[in-house]
Structures are given as C-alpha cells and as structure tokens.
C-alpha cells in the first residue's frame, strides 16, 4: 500500500512539468515577488508575439543564500535573480552556472541596482539628511543585525564607506563612526522584515535604514504614517545579479527562453517596470523619466572601497574581524 501510494505521488509530481509549452522557474530573493509578478506577464506576452509560443514562469522566493543552497541540492531553477553576487558565485563554483556569468549580461550581469537609504518619520522631526546625523546622541536608528542580515551588511559597509570618505580614508575614524552608529541602534532584529516591523508597527526609532527600493515600498504600505524617504549623500551600490542556471536549462531545454527572459530585464520595457518598482536602472531614457524618484548621490562599490567581497569577508565579516569588534564594543 505504501509503495503504491508512493508511486502515485511520484507520478503526480512528475506529471506537472511535462506540459507542451515553454516553462521556466525563476528562483529569486525574498522581497522580489511584486517585482516579478509585474514583469512576468509582460515578458510572456512579448515571447508569445516573438515566437508564437506560450511560456509559464514559476517563481520561488526566499533568502538568496538559502535559495542557492536549494539549487545546489536540485531545485530545478532555470534562471536566478539574486541580491548577492556571492550566491551566484556559489552556483558557478559548483558548475551549475557558467564560470564567466558576470560577462554573460551587461553591467556585470546586474540589470538593476539599489542602495542603503533612509526612511524617517513624518516631517523628519530629527532633521536627518545624511549619515552623520545618525550618530547624534538623541537619534535612534533601526536596521537589522549585520551578522545575520545581508541587508544590514550593506548598511554597515555604506556607513563605513561614508566615514572613510569624510575622514580622508582614516580607518580608525571610520570604525569609531560605525561604533557610534551601532550605539544608537536600540534593537538588532535578525532580518529586514523584522526591522521594518520594529520601525513601523512598534514605532521604535527615528530612522530605518534599508534598500531604497524597500523604503519606497514601506512608505506606500504604511501611507497613513507619512514616512518620508531621505537619500544620503553617499551610499554603497547594491547589485542584483542574474544568471542562467545552464545545467538545469540544458536539461529542461529552456536555454533560449531563459536567456530571453533575462535579456528582457535590460530592455527599455523591462527597465521601466523595474524603475516603477523602485529599483534604479541603467537605461538612459528610463533614468530620465524617473529622475525625480531617484535623487543623485555618490555611489561607491564594494570593489572600489573594500577591494571586493572576498576581502570584505576576510577583513570585516569573518569571526573576530572588524564588524565583530565594533559590534561587541558598542
């Protein structure tokens, strides 16, 4: 009885993907659902017009490291759209993604980007305009724990980069600055969503730091509270890299549609959809259209300031490294 049911379950499980049309699975980070819910139907229409074939696009969302892990264990992703380059690199190291994936698409395979930015309470009562306003004594800052949250890691590095910039590259001064910033954080939640809840539902803190795309969405979600977005003078480029999972795509026969799907993100149409969802894009026309929603600022990269993610891992994030020391001392 057990084996027969198991066999039935197996057939049911196998029957699903065996339809005649094109099908791809996009495995993505956890807050991108609305984004791809907006993009997928537009792409499907375009694909139909170009090739005459239907395409169904399935979505899986989760923490991107966890998603990478699932793909390593066999989650049949055709494309990945992540928020950490390191998580695609893991797949490339395992041979699932082409070694030179960063050259496979323009802009280092990152069709859109964002940056750590601020969300303040209605009327900005504490007058917060830039990073140095955050270390004032009466200001409470909310962002998640940089030990557990990738989002907060960007915040940490952006604050560090800002302090390096204003202190002419003096690391000691920069670390002192970040230490004072940590001291102004009343609670370190484990993830971005929890920090949002702390700020918006528990009413704790004067400013929430998270990706710009998030601050815009939170401001809309809690429209009745009148939160205001504030863009600092300098921040850290947060890339959102994409790749075709070539091993899976080859097995599923979906290479062509997978590539077309990611190419679409770079098309003016795709870039407009991305900008509408509060992500910054590279297309000049779209940039001009949305200029008022994305204030100019100085953007630095992890490569330029910190020598790349590998070095950040060793010097800042490893156990007992700079982040640990600042985190404990606050």
């Amino acid at each position: 009885m057990k084996t027969r049911l198991l066999a039935a379950a197996l057939t049911l499980g196998l029957a699903a993907p065996a339809s005649a049309q094109d099908a791809i699975l996009n495995v993505s980070y956890d807050i991108a659902r609305e984004l791809f819910a907006a993009i997928n139907p537009v792409f499907a229409e375009k694909w139909k017009a170009e090739t005459g074939r239907d395409v169904s696009i399935d979505q899986s969302h989760g923490g991107s490291s966890r998603q990478a892990r699932a793909i390593l264990e066999g989650l049949p992703a055709d494309v990945v759209t992540f928020n950490q380059t390191t998580d695609i690199q893991v797949l490339a190291d395992a041979g699932l993604v082409d070694e030179n994936w960063r050259e496979a698409f323009p802009n280092d395979a990152s069709p859109y980007y964002s940056l750590p930015s601020f969300l303040v309470r209605e009327g900005n009562p504490k007058g917060i305009e830039d990073w140095d306003d955050l270390v004032a004594e009466d200001v409470q800052v909310i962002f998640p724990n940089p030990k557990t949250s990738g989002n907060a890691r960007y915040t940490y590095l952006a604050a560090y980069a800002y302090a390096l910039e204003v202190n002419d590259g003096d690391h000691e001064a920069a670390q002192d600055f970040v230490g004072r910033l940590f001291a102004n954080v009343p609670v370190f939640d484990t993830g971005g969503r929890a920090a949002t809840a702390t700020f918006a539902e528990r009413n704790l803190g004067d400013v929430l730091i998270t990706f710009e795309a998030e601050t815009a969405q939170i401001a809309r979600q809690y429209a009745d509270q009148g939160f205001e977005q504030v863009t600092p003078s300098l921040s850290l480029l947060a890339e959102f890299p994409v790749a075709v999972v070539s091993e899976n795509a080859a097995r599923n026969g979906s290479e062509e549609v997978s590539k077309a799907y990611l190419d679409f993100l770079y098309s003016p149409e795709g870039q407009r959809l991305l900008a509408e969802n509060d992500y910054r894009v590279h297309d000049e026309t779209v940039k001009a259209e949305f200029a008022d929603r994305f204030p100019e600022l100085k953007l630095v990269t992890a490569e330029d300031v910190f020598g790349g993610w590998e070095q950040i891992g060793e010097e800042h994030l490893a156990e007992g490294a700079i982040l640990d020391r600042l985190f404990v001392n606050q």
């Binding site: 198991l6 499980g13 196998l14 699903a16 993907p17 049949p76």
Partner: peptide, 14 residues
Amino acid sequence: HDIQILFALPGIVM
C-alpha cells in the same frame, strides 16, 4: 533517471 523527489510533491509527502 530524471526523477524529481525534492522540491516536488514526493519530497513534501515523504
């Protein structure tokens, strides 16, 4: 053998 157990119904049921 192209048998998908994980990330599909069989895995969830098991």
